[in-house]
Amino acid sequence: MRPVAHAPSRLVRGLILGSIGLVFAIPIIAMVEFTLRRGLAGGHDFSRWTALFQGGFTGPYRSVLVALGNSVGLAVGTVAIVLLLLVPTLLLVHLRFPRLRRLMEFVCILPISIPAIVLVVGLAPVYSVLARVAGSGVWTLSFAYGITVLPFAYRAIQSNLDGVDVRTLSEAARTLGAGWGSVLLRVLIPNLRRGILAGAFISVAVVLGEFTIASLLNRITLQTALVVVSKADPYTAVILSLLALTFAFLLLLVIGRLGTVRTGRRRPITGGQP
């Protein structure tokens, strides 16, 4: 790959990323060190980790596992809302109704102007009505989460949409005889995959880390369960936090890798036909 003309030199890049990376590693290292402490006697060992895993997640920590299941289910539901509702809507507005763009942007960014802590003041009455209709299952939170992830998903997808000349691409494809279905699936979505994936990334991360709405509506999710555990046993809470952070990191890494692997496979095929 030819280096971009305005990119920094190797040395400058290493210096910048190295120093920022180092500072950002400190709290994580501190968390690891904290979990390895052996109480007042000093020294370090893995006793707290082995104690947690030998007990299995049965005893007092079973609730964390249940809560994690709840959170993952909510993340799947929220990403489905983003992919099935937001992506087609944004494309439609961009291609067919460009006049609605400012309105669309306003609506999508609106939830960030309405902090979760404010939303929860008004959500409580809405959910008490909803509980009568649909029950008070944890899954109902995904509607509220669909709203809270909207600005982030919108920004990710829209900035990709702005960087790609969607109109020319789709007109070219239409001129060459493609139907709207194949324009969408074979031209637009592959070109927008980075934005769409980024939108999905950030949605999953938001839902897995959401605390405000869940805690003030008394739903059990990963974060509310962690706070409960931390009151009784801070060491275990930090261990579980590390595991949760690692889990989320790996999850996002896998989703990102899936995107690049798929395109990496496709590229040689199209490139192999001169």
């Binding site: 968390m31 982030f152 962690l226 931390s230 949760a244 990191f249």
Partner: peptide, 13 residues
């Protein structure tokens, strides 16, 4: 992605 949005409670820890 993890630190910006997943942090919350765990950053406090």
């Amino acid at each position: 992605g993890v630190l910006a949005q997943f942090g919350g409670v765990m950053l406090a820890f």
